[in-house]
Design a protein around this nucleic acid. Structure first.
Lengths: 344, 344
DNA sequence: TACAAAAGTGGAACCGGTTCCACTCCGGAC
DNA sequence: GTCCGGAGTGGAACCGGTTCCACTTTTGTA
């Protein structure tokens, strides 16, 4: 348990001052004679010296660290997102402190405080929708905030990276309409979230373009967590005029929805056509493989990191960016024309 | 972008010295008159003061942070594990810095250096198997290391939390043997990993107890990442005498293995009985639902956190702990007696 | 050859906490 | 009344980096 060498140890061993060592460590900060630089580097290597992050942070006032705040990692969507973000961050020499909110604004508030204590220079988050003042304060304190997947309307001046929610929902709905379905169920997140409302609007727009009325009883805006998706499936199929097609428009709800469909022994696509949001690896392992909206996670992660790092280095113009990346519709075998459905 | 108050601001506003404020912040560190304590707390609240973590770390020499080093979060096993660990850590006021290794010892080495720079007080890791000296050095520098899921044999004095690998493999094998199968394929991780070899040994022990020979051509020890699992499935089923049952003994390989089986149109369980390690949520969504060895993630996470925090607070006796938690066999519908297989 | 500009260097303050130590009170024991 | 011990307090050093500034040595140019 010997203790690690400090910059002063290095300076002494190399016969120079700490300033010189520091300048070797941060080449931009000043000139060093080539010979001394060599010597210092040699000593650093010999002693196995590594600068302590805490000291650097204290002096700099901020850490080369970003906070990642997501709902929970059990959700494969967030897990894969986190995976990419950690990966991208690492390649830029930035560490990631991970916090989960379980969709609870109190836990979210707590997380923000903690991240603030840590002087993180950026935060990538899927906001719960609460804590508006806290988010604003965070940004006012100089922390670069990027929302990913969801936005908070009240915070117009925060960067957002999301998929084309409106568009994807509209296209899925149109696809089902083109197959002859007119009663299309929609399971989506709370309408207070930007994703929930945008996807509902896309669904409505598709109906409008086809001059079809929207039956509000076919729409279920339910909580993200727990078995809300399964419950919604149950109640939709128990209707007197149940839908002949279903869009599960939120990743968090897909698992419980599909589980319920399997439990109920619903025949897909003959009894029900199904499109789900997000292409988890297992969606092609079900019978039949599911048609999905594939969210380009890589793009979400890359843009989010670029925004955060860009702002950290002051390389981005003022004004919030809103980046929407395209989500593809990936047809597999869970959708069928309505005619076939009737024939069944 | 106003700057946050420091401990000296608080001291000035409360009309006391910084020492008093510090003692209010850390009650164990000395006495404070009740009246002054009240006043200081009031000022802290009024100013919204929060101690900077970096300053505390610099002074203390270590951070209230642990590193979590896993292969990658795309693997649901690690994702759920990380979820639990972050959760448990938070409830103890500890933050988690996340790093992924992609099973690459170089990336692992990098991660360890970074964590060292950050003065983390503990690391929970799924080691790649390399970097033995580096792990040892980390521990010698006073960082509490706990390996989870896997061990490194050479590092006898590091705590390990894992499932009963030998036992689970033995029991799955015995179950399949009891169904009449004699040619049981085994897909597992590299034998250089502790899980790989323990599971193979359990498989062998079951054969031995049943006085059956082990056919080494039925065993595939393949890399964790990529499509190695799928490849192994392909080569096993292409044998002249293919197995009638298969155990996929590693979480990371289950997805690619099952995908290949689905692609090949193998009828489970009629053509092939299947047991896979770890109960991902989707394993019950396949046709048929898969019989699994369920790894008690919660227990792994809880034990790992308790070990790390216990050591951090010096509350644990010397000497490495090896904790093995029981993994249940959860029968669903992917295993059938051999007789039926033949009838098919 | 002279002198200004640039390169190179070290000392010391600073970031914001924690902790050691010296010092002042005060009450209780003798 | 004296002495002792503990509660309560503030000053200052310290953790390990970064950075500003003053100073010396080169280098380049007229």
């Amino acid at each position: 348990m010997r203790k690690a060498p400090t910059i002063r140890d290095v300076a002494a061993a190399a016969g120079v001052s700490v300033s010189v060592v520091s300048r070797v460590l941060n080449p931009e900060s000043g000139p060093v004679a080539p010979a001394k630089r060599q010597e210092v580097l040699r000593v650093i290597d010999e002693l196995g010296y590594r600068p302590r992050a805490a000291a650097r942070e204290l002096s700099a006032g901020h850490a080369l660290t970003i906070g990642l705040v997501v709902t929970d990692l059990s959700n494969p969507f967030f897990a894969r997102l986190a995976d990419r973000i950690v990966w991208e961050a690492r390649s830029h020499g930035v560490q990631v402190v991970l916090m989960t909110t379980q969709e609870d604004p109190h836990l979210e508030a707590d997380s923000l405080d903690t991240l603030l204590d840590r002087s993180v220079s950026g935060v990538i988050a899927t906001p719960t929708g609460g804590n508006i003042e806290k988010w604003r304060r965070l940004r006012d304190l100089g922390v670069n905030v990027v929302f990913i997947d969801r936005a908070i309307e009240e915070l117009e001046d925060v960067d957002v990276v999301s998929i084309e929610n409106f568009d994807s929902a509209q296209r899925s709905t149109e696809h089902l309409l083109s197959l002859g379905h007119t009663r299309i169920g929609l399971i989506t997140g709370p309408l207070t979230t930007s994703t929930g409302s945008a996807r509902l609007n896309g669904y409505k727009a598709a109906h409008q373009n086809a001059s079809l009325p929207v039956d509000p009883t076919l729409i279920r805006d339910v909580p993200f967590r727990g078995d809300a998706g399964g419950g919604a499936v149950g109640s939709l199929l128990a209707m007197r005029q149940p839908p002949t097609a279903l869009i599960v428009a939120n990743t968090a709800q897909v698992q419980s929805s599909v589980r319920r469909l399997v439990q109920m022994g619903i025949d897909i696509p003959d009894e029900l056509s199904l499109i789900v949001f997000d292409d988890n690896p297992w969606t092609e392992l079900t019978t039949p493989p599911l048609s999905v909206i594939r969210q380009p996670l890589d793009m979400l992660a890359v843009h989010a990191i670029e925004l955060v790092l860009g702002r950290m280095h002051g390389k981005l113009p003022d004004g919030a960016r809103r980046i929407e990346v395209k989500a593809d519709y990936l047809p597999r075998n869970s959708c069928a024309p309505l005619i076939l459905s009737n024939a069944h």
